[in-house]
Design a protein around this nucleic acid. Structure first.
Lengths: 267, 267
DNA sequence: GTCGCAATATGTCGGAGTAAATCAGGAGAT
DNA sequence: ATCTCCTGATTTACTCCGACATATTGCGAC
């Protein structure tokens, strides 16, 4: 196999931190401020993106442990730990004598934020993005409806702050996109449903990647603030139907923007 | 390459996913590993259930590698690989000098089928089960609506077969519960939405565990077949509104049954 | 054709050495 | 004298290594 040398991996370790965490924005204290990814983490990232990009197709069997580890210039321990990570996410499965094989796509845990990141590391699949937005168009309006019923004053306050931050920074900046994520996250939290909050990590990641992709075209088709404000007011006033409706059009418009950007870029 | 062996892999993995120990022997240790379950997998199961059951609370730091591995009578390699699995699922995070800490619940990947299984290994949290059913009541009617639009003849055939199997075995048997899962799975697949199919793995697992829990009370409150049949007919005839409606009542009734069972068992 | 043996690759083990992050102590400034 | 900041030392996870154990597969013998 044509393998890039280890330098590629080692370099990715130090480079990933500066790329993901810009100096300007200091993340929350609870966030993993682990600066550098470890070797097995970088390996998992490398192999994960290779699998998600189709470089290894489902059913393929990877080279043996000793051979592959040597080829990647890492010890068997580090390689095995990386494989355990991929196995935990349903990407591969190892059996003695049979080797390590890539599992069929249905087993992949695509809702895992890390897997989602790997999926968007290369060229995103248009059909998959459409599916993700369809899922959003189901989840988020329903979440907005629940939030309109159950939101506390604190929830509303967080939403207002996030919306204000969006207004200040706009979606062209990282801070603005973070505020957008906080806004949607606050709504899902306001549902009081723990399973919903967990989904927010996945959906939030999807929104993050698609929004970032949208920015590649250097074009802002529309001002998203009014849509968000409409959702916020409906939730704050406790109007469940209006909240669901407003969130529905918000997601639809976001899909429209993203799709036009992808078509423009794809063709 | 060896494409003919792919079937073997899928089969083996599917088998591993389902519970591998029909004998309820030695429930205390939960580390009894049989064929197909490696030591680090069993360790991850043991530690995962310990965390999910609250034995290790978020923020807790568990003993050092050497000490804990020795206490568990395993090598550090096996222990570390188990930790990598837990870390990949967002349950823990390890840092030099700081040790391995249990992450806050928000970062747990509760939609991971394996994590879900760990959550239901002990006494399930009533609030969490309610949240899961609320999520189902959002996802599944919407899925049924989409399925009514997009289902193929093949999808309908699979649903009919699953329903027939449910009729034959009833939910008291493993085969019946598997058929129930196949039924819901077929609907989510019929949406043609890949993200939805991925969710089916999570939701299916949740349904599996709650249904099994329902059976502990040795009581069959209601015959679920008519509800399922109503959903099936609505989807087959392409009536989206009726499909969503029928699926809504199905989930509501299932929640009602489960909740009454849990209250009875809890008190 | 069935049974059993052997080859092979994953799984498990324990130890040594490296890198990193935290805590404590001391030097300097206020 | 108290506080802040820097520096080092210690503790801990991380990585590597080489050997052995175990399970699965496939081939050969009966």
């Amino acid at each position: 196999m044509h393998q890039e040398d280890l330098q590629d991996v080692t370099e990715a370790v130090t480079e990933t931190q500066s790329e993901r965490q810009p100096k300007g924005s200091d993340e929350r204290k609870t966030m993993t401020r682990g600066p550098g990814r470890r070797l097995h983490g970088a390996l998992a990232h490398k192999l994960g993106t290779a699998i998600l990009s189709g470089q290894y197709a489902p059913g393929d069997v990877l080279p043996g442990e000793v051979a592959f580890a040597e080829e990647l210039k890492v010890s068997r321990s580090a390689y095995r730990e990386a494989i355990q990570v991929l196995a935990a996410k349903g990407l591969v499965a190892s059996r003695p004598k049979a080797g390590t094989r890539v599992l069929p796509r249905e087993r992949w845990n695509l809702l895992d934020p890390e897997v989602l990141a790997w999926a968007f590391a290369g060229e995103p699949d248009v059909a998959f993005v459409r599916d993700l937005f369809e899922l959003r168009s189901i989840i988020e309006p329903a979440a907005a409806r629940l939030a309109a019923h159950r939101r506390t004053k604190d929830d509303v306050r967080v939403m207002r702050e996030a919306l204000a931050a969006m207004r200040r920074h706009t979606l062209t900046t990282d801070a603005g996109r973070a505020a957008d994520r906080d806004f949607h996250d606050a709504i899902l939290r306001a549902t009081g449903n723990h399973a919903m909050v967990v989904l927010s990590a996945s959906i939030g990641a999807a929104v993050h990647w698609t929004t970032q992709f949208k920015q590649r075209t250097r074009e802002l088709p529309r001002n998203p603030i009014p849509d968000h404000a409409r959702v916020l007011e409906a939730i704050a006033s406790g109007d469940a139907d209006a909240a669901a409706e407003a969130m529905g059009v918000l997601v639809d418009l976001a899909l429209e923007d993203t799709r036009s950007s992808m078509e423009r870029s794809g063709d």
